[in-house]
Write a protein that binds this DNA or RNA. Structure first.
Lengths: 223, 223
DNA sequence: GTGCCAATTGTACTTTGGTACAAGGGTGGT
DNA sequence: ACCACCCTTGTACCAAAGTACAATTGGCAC
């Protein structure tokens, strides 16, 4: 019996998502949360869920903070981001941060069901038209951030987990413990990450990655 | 003849500040900038200014980004932050980031003049009533950020410069070069910083410091 | 002056971080 | 079967980071 967490502060949205989940899964146990604290508490008590549907904007956190926290604390739980916004940058960034899918609230229920099934099978989902759209060519220095994001997207799933833990300031040893792998392996991942991101120290990687989250979200929140 | 840069996107504000600067300094050379790019360009050409009056919200940057950039690129130039907002947290944070003063736009001109003289003499200025006000006791996890900010405030000026450069992902060697000191000294500073901030790696320090800027500014921007 | 503190630098040492190279196991596609 | 890719691990080595201790300089306050 798969455990599915639905986290959204709006009851109506939770209701709609519940329907989709029931259609996509076989006898799911659905757990609802109205704010991030409840999600974290719930995950702590049950260890890991089979799927987490997470709204971007909830009491307690705006933007990707929630996603980042959940992913770093409970990397085993796949997360699908639910959002009222549909900016392609948000989609790319959510996926870059380890989300297994991005579902705009305007998505038809049939497609939501398909998306959830896809993710449950280990795939990742994102709305086609959004991803295909070319990244908006910002004339200013914003371009560098976008370049960097593109590079983040070339990271493998495990490498993203490492990057996320890197972003909390953890040592290689701690990351190894968290992911239950050898420190050697962590080093290998870090090395690969640094190359892909074209930086020469973990701190730089963290700084660059840190710029992504809040900055690009702030852009959207303002506009 | 002291070189003073006034950076604000609003001509009227620049005019008012010009008057104050002319009253506080002896035959100042006043350079006006309407956006951050101009400030950086100007500083590059003249190396360092005797004072920079910097508005928080300008085209090109919101929040402390501008302050951080200027401070890290041109640590020799004292910066006084000009802001329409007066949140005590902003004041403390601006000072934590290396500003030599914080002047709300509502400040009477006489006091602005006094403030500029104070800073020119090597002091730091902040509005009395604001700093004395106790930090708002946030009931939630926000408290940790505030604790951290308090610790940042215990850093010496040079240590703050090091922290800022740390925040750009630079190596000790690079920081040493930028500040024109020995790498040994940088290590000594970093060591001291880590102790004061109660973290055990530069990356953690960077992560924690990174949380301050945008987060607490976002809070204010929303309210 | 004396004392305190920031800042500087040095030596010497330990711990992390990061690279290079090699290699085995697993998955998925052709 | 073969290839490509991811994940894993190991060894070995080098660079960077961090600690500990000691010392000098200069400013500022009492």
């Amino acid at each position: 019996m798969p455990q599915i967490i639905i986290a959204d502060d709006h009851p109506m949205v939770r209701g709609a998502l519940t329907l989709a989940v029931e259609a996509a899964f076989d006898q799911p146990e659905i757990l609802e949360c109205a704010h991030l604290g409840a999600v974290m508490q719930l995950l702590e008590s049950i260890g890991a869920a089979d799927l987490l549907l997470l709204d971007l904007r909830m009491p307690g956190v705006d933007g990707f903070e929630g996603l980042v926290r959940v992913r770093s604390q409970f990397p085993a739980t796949p997360v699908v981001v639910i959002s009222a916004l549909e900016d392609p940058r948000l989609v790319r960034e959510a996926l870059a941060l380890g989300a297994m899918g991005f579902i705009p609230k305007s998505t038809p229920r049939a497609e939501i069901v398909a998306a959830l099934s896809l993710v449950a099978g280990g795939g990742t989902y994102r709305p086609d038209d959004l991803v295909m759209a070319a990244p908006p060519p910002d004339p200013k220095g914003q371009a560098t951030d976008d370049d960097f994001l593109q590079r983040v997207l070339t990271l493998t799933p495990q490498q993203r987990r490492v990057l996320q833990l890197l972003g909390t300031g953890k040592l290689n040893k701690e990351i190894a413990y968290d992911l239950d792998i050898a420190e050697t392996t962590v080093k290998a991942h870090v090395s690969s990450i640094l190359h892909k991101l074209r930086v020469y120290s973990r701190t730089q990687a963290v700084v660059m990655a840190g710029r992504l989250h809040l900055d690009s979200f702030a852009d959207v929140a303002e506009g």
